[in-house]
């Protein structure tokens, strides 16, 4: 009984994922590329960086990098709190 329940849940989840995959665009063909064209055209003039990915990460989307740094800091603080040496 339990086996069939697990199998049915697996079939439902796999069917939903395959249904979503069937509606995907062809590989390498994005439709909304206005933002990409903006970054490709302007990053050399505005940030003076040849690497557009780094220009986006550290300049246009600097807040995201700040959040990533905060996540890393919180992770390190959590590990240091849990794994500290407790004095007995």
């Amino acid at each position: 009984m339990r086996y069939w329940t697990v199998l049915a849940a697996f079939a439902v989840v796999a069917g939903c994922l395959l249904l979503g995959g069937a509606g995907m665009r062809p590989f390498g063909a994005p439709r909304l590329d206005a933002m990409d064209q903006y970054f490709n055209a302007r990053s050399q003039a505005e940030v003076a960086a040849n690497n557009v990915v780094t220009a986006i990460v550290f300049d246009y989307r600097g807040y995201d990098t700040l959040g990533e740094a905060t996540v890393l800091f919180v992770a390190v603080v959590g590990v240091a709190l849990i794994l500290r040496r407790v004095k007995r």
Binding site: Q44, V47, A48, T54, A55, D59
Partner: peptide, 22 residues
């Protein structure tokens, strides 16, 4: 240092605060 538009060999002395943030 300013960067010319289009494909060009990279110069290390560019990109403002980005290398320092790196």
């Amino acid at each position: 240092a300013p960067v010319p538009s289009g494909p060009n060999p990279g110069v290390l002395n560019t990109a403002g605060t980005v290398p320092l943030m790196n």
